[in-house]
Simulated assay, not measured.
Amino acid sequence: MLGNRIIHRTADGVRIPGTWRHAFICNGGSYFLTDLFIYADGLIDCWELVTLEEFEQKLRRGWVATSLPEGGKASAHHLASWTFGDPYTWLTPDLLLAEVRDTVDELNGRPDSTARCLAAVDVFMADRTEDHRAAARAAYLAVPETVRHYALGDMDRKDRPLRVLVAGPGGRTPDERAEVVTQEQYDHAVAYFEEREQWRAKAASRVPADGPATSFAPAVKIYHSYPQRALEDPGKQALRNDYPAPITVGDLACPSVAHAYWARSVAEPEARTAVLAAESGAKARTVAAAAPRREGWEGARTAVMAGLLRAKYEQHPDLAAILLATGDATLLYDDADSDFWGDNGGRGRNWTGRLLELVRSELRAGPAGQALVD
């Protein structure tokens, strides 16, 4: 639950909402009490900005620590240091990962595991079959143990009516006590949920006319690479500007977007020819760097790149399909040579990623959807 722990990070003027929670980082055998910063686009800052997939890897490796050894050395931001004595933690990698995934859902206004559980209960209450009860019980068990008590928002009864309902008369509650549920207890639980439904029916609801105010799919990182040849199944590597996907722009035939961009950047025709003849996009950059820039290039380069990306994905439908498959995800483009074009761990402006998102939107609209933007 977010509570008042609302933060944000700014990615080139765009505010990405987030929250924080305490955690231990294990680095070099020592443990550091710090904060995890969790953002709505699925990025987590655990001493570096990582995707959910990378975060899970750090959990499994113990970089984000969920077990604390007897005698382990710990510190907190140079404020204090101590040695663990008889340490106890209820977290496991799976539990912490589930909590973080729930947090991302909550930041986006999507149903988290608790909401999915309550939806399964609604199905059971509408049609009280044992199959529906089993589905509700499974959904309850999918809620992280640390938040089950808060599922109903009832600080007096906690989640007891929920445990009794999914157990059923004669069944055992899904908790450590595993109590056998009596008919009377079950009837009280049913009455509780019937009253709860009546209260919910009276509550005012509002559906935003234009959909959620903010919504983020898990971010997609386009890692820095040096593709040398076209691949049968390139995956996200095909979204690199230096991926060998030839494009024709005006009267220029270019081996890749990178070649086209750097050829457009130079002032002299001889340099342009040399750039286009370079063996790779990286070498095209090197050749262009040694030549004078065109006048006004810095102000025009973003528009030039947008046009080149449109050409690439219009002329290569197979690569356009890869771009469209990223959905509405934030695209983080690594560029070791440029904090202007690359995100680079949150340090850069990520203009390539942003322009890819623009072109993706245009592709999705297509000819039939052009009226949407006219």
Rank of each mutant, 00 (worst) to 15 (best):
Arg101Tyr: 07
Phe193Glu: 03
Pro144Gly: 02
Gly71Arg: 01
Trp351His: 15
Ala303Phe: 09
Gly18Val: 02
Trp90Asn: 15
Gly299Asn: 04
Pro269Tyr: 01
Ala120Asp: 09
Arg110Gln: 13
Gly348Cys: 02
Thr19Gln: 05
Trp63Asp: 12
Arg157Lys: 14
Ala238Cys: 04
Val121Ile: 06
Gly211Gln: 04
Ser30Ala: 14
Leu68Asp: 05
Phe55Asn: 06
Thr330Met: 13
Trp82Leu: 07
Lys73Tyr: 14
Val275Phe: 00
Asp12Pro: 10
Lys158Gly: 15
Val266Asp: 00
Gly345Asp: 11
Ala303Asp: 11
Gln183Glu: 14
Ala167His: 07
Thr34Ser: 10
Ala178Cys: 12
Gly353Trp: 08
Gly109Arg: 02
Gln237Gly: 10
Glu48Ile: 14
Ala253Phe: 11
Leu372Met: 12
His149Arg: 14
Arg5Ile: 09
Arg301His: 00
Val123Ser: 14
Arg272Gly: 00
Ala11Gln: 15
Arg360Glu: 02
Arg310Phe: 09
Pro212Thr: 09
Glu145Phe: 15
Asp112Glu: 10
Pro212Gln: 07
His316Tyr: 01
Asp242Ala: 13
Gln57Phe: 13
Gln198Asp: 12
Ala303Gly: 06
Gly153Leu: 06
Val64Arg: 05
Val275Asp: 00
Gly348Trp: 01
Pro227Arg: 01
Ile16Asp: 04
Trp341Cys: 01
Arg172Gly: 15
Arg196His: 10
Ala178Thr: 09
Asp242Lys: 08
Gly348Ile: 02
Tyr261Leu: 05
Ala76Asp: 15
Ala76Asn: 15
Val249Trp: 02
Arg60Glu: 11
Ala80Thr: 14
Asp335Pro: 08
Ala119Arg: 10
Ala306Arg: 09
Ile6Ala: 13
Ile44Asp: 06
Gly342Lys: 01
Pro17Tyr: 04
Glu268Gly: 05
Phe193Val: 01
Asp86Ala: 14
Phe340Gln: 12
Ala325Glu: 10
Leu355Ser: 08
Ala139Tyr: 04
Ala167Ile: 06
Tyr39Ile: 01
Pro317Asp: 02
Thr173Gln: 08
Leu68Gln: 03
Leu309Gln: 08
Pro269Asp: 00
Pro212Glu: 04
Ala167Pro: 08
Arg310Asn: 05
Glu48Pro: 11
Ile247His: 02
Arg294Val: 08
Tyr261Pro: 00
Pro208Arg: 04
Trp297Leu: 07
His224Met: 14
Ala191Pro: 09
Glu195Gly: 12
Ile25Gln: 15
Ala151Ser: 12
Met125His: 03
Ala74Arg: 02
Leu118Trp: 09
